[in-house]
């Protein structure tokens, strides 16, 4: 099973990378861009068949290590085919 985790900065926390990329995208002169936020994508492979157990374990990993709850939010997508 694979857990696909996305970590993003909380709304309101300054995202300097996102701002720099926003400025670069503006040079393309295409669609109007309202904002860019950059996050992290993490895959964790688990030797577990029970999806609920796996999700609980991954949630703990996010709360304790993978994300910093002071500045970051996360979302988890479990892929039992992975």
């Amino acid at each position: 099973m694979i857990a696909r985790i996305t970590v993003t900065l909380k709304p309101g926390v300054l995202d300097t990378q996102g701002r720099a990329v926003h400025d670069a995208l503006k040079t393309l002169d295409q669609a109007t861009i309202d904002g860019v936020r950059i996050g992290k994508y993490i895959e964790v492979k688990l030797d577990e068949t029970d999806i609920m157990k796996a999700r609980t374990a991954v949630k703990e990993m996010c709360d304790k290590i993978l994300a910093n709850p002071v500045i970051e939010d996360y979302s988890i997508e479990m892929d039992s085919e992975g």
């Binding site: 926390v13 300054l14 300097t16 990378q17 701002r19 720099a20 910093n68 002071v70 500045i71």
Partner: peptide, 17 residues
């Protein structure tokens, strides 16, 4: 120390990048 929870808050990338 902030990551460990011994001090509050967090240190993020400088405003200037």
């Amino acid at each position: 120390l902030t990551e460990a929870g011994h001090l509050p808050g967090a240190l993020i990338q400088n405003r200037s990048t």
